[in-house]
Deep mutational scan, measured.
Amino acid sequence: KKYKVVEVKENKDGTVELVVENENGEKKKITLSKEELDKLKAGDTVELK
């Protein structure tokens, strides 16, 4: 499934919390490390299994 990044929030521990949404409007929260996030920004599309 493809999800669009709608919100990006940095946590104090250096991880980043993303809120992503698919075309049905379903939202998910995922947490990434700073390194994983470096290639993402709001409006990008991510694929989740």
Score class of each variant (00 low, 15 high):
T15M: 08
K39D: 14
G43K: 02
S33N: 11
K29L: 12
K9A: 06
I30M: 05
V20C: 10
L48A: 13
E26P: 01
L18G: 00
L18P: 00
E10S: 05
K27L: 10
T31R: 08
Y3Q: 08
L40A: 11
E17R: 04
K39P: 14
G25C: 07
T15V: 03
D13L: 01
D38N: 14
K2E: 09
V5R: 00
S33H: 13
E23V: 08
E35R: 09
T45F: 14
L37H: 13
K41P: 04
E21H: 03
E47N: 12
L40G: 03
K27I: 13
G14C: 02
L48F: 02
G43F: 03
L48P: 14
T45G: 02
S33P: 14
V6I: 13
V19C: 09
K12D: 10
K29F: 13
E21I: 09
K41L: 10
V16F: 11
E23T: 08
K4W: 09
K1V: 14
L40F: 14
K12W: 13
K2A: 05
K12E: 09
K29A: 11
N22P: 01
K1Q: 12
A42C: 14
A42H: 06
K1G: 13
N22T: 07
L18M: 07
E17V: 10
K27C: 12
L32F: 07
L48C: 15
K29S: 14
K1T: 10
A42Y: 04
T45N: 10
D44P: 02
L18V: 13
D13G: 03
G25M: 04
T15D: 04
T15A: 03
V6W: 02
N11Q: 09
A42I: 15
E23H: 06
K1R: 11
G14F: 01
K4E: 05
K2T: 07
K29E: 07
G14H: 02
E47P: 01
N11G: 07
K34W: 12
E10V: 07
V6L: 11
K41R: 11
S33A: 13
A42Q: 09
E35N: 13
K39Y: 08
K2L: 10
E26D: 13
T31Y: 09
L18N: 00
E47G: 03
L48Q: 09
N24P: 01
D38T: 11
V20L: 07
I30Y: 05
N22E: 08
G25S: 04
K9I: 11
V19D: 03
K1Y: 02
G14M: 02
K34Y: 14
V16H: 05
A42K: 08
E17C: 12
L40M: 08
V6N: 03
V20P: 00
E36M: 10
V20M: 06
D44Q: 06
E21D: 01
K49Y: 00
L32E: 00
K12Y: 12
E10I: 05
L40Y: 14
D13P: 00
E26Y: 07
K27Q: 13
E23C: 09
N22C: 12
K9P: 00
D13S: 02
I30L: 09
L48R: 10
D13C: 07
G25N: 04
S33Q: 14
G25E: 01
V5D: 01
V20K: 00
V16G: 08
K4D: 04
K28T: 14
K34R: 12
K2N: 07
L32P: 01
Y3R: 04
G14D: 03
D13E: 03
K39V: 08
E7M: 08
K12Q: 13
K34E: 06
K29R: 12
V20H: 00
Y3L: 12
V46F: 02
K4Y: 09
L40Q: 04
L48I: 15
S33V: 11
V16Q: 03
E36N: 13
T15I: 05
T15F: 06
D38R: 05
E35W: 07
K27T: 13
V6Y: 03
K27Y: 07
E23S: 06
V6A: 02
N22M: 11
V19W: 09
E35V: 11
G25L: 03
V20Y: 10
V46R: 01
K1M: 09
L37E: 03
K27A: 07
T31H: 05
E10A: 10
E23F: 07
V19G: 01
E47H: 13
L40I: 15
T15G: 04
T15K: 04
V5G: 01
K9H: 13
V20D: 00
E23L: 06
L32A: 09
G43Q: 05
D38Q: 06
V19Q: 06
K9G: 05
V8C: 13
E21S: 05
K29H: 12
K41N: 08
G43W: 03
V46K: 02
T45A: 02
G25T: 01
V6C: 08
D38Y: 02
L18F: 02
V8P: 00
E7H: 06
K39T: 12
Y3T: 07
V19H: 07
E21A: 07
D38I: 08
G43N: 10
D44L: 06
N11D: 03
E23G: 04
K1H: 08
G14W: 01
K4A: 06
T31M: 10
L32I: 14
K49G: 15
K49R: 10
L32N: 01
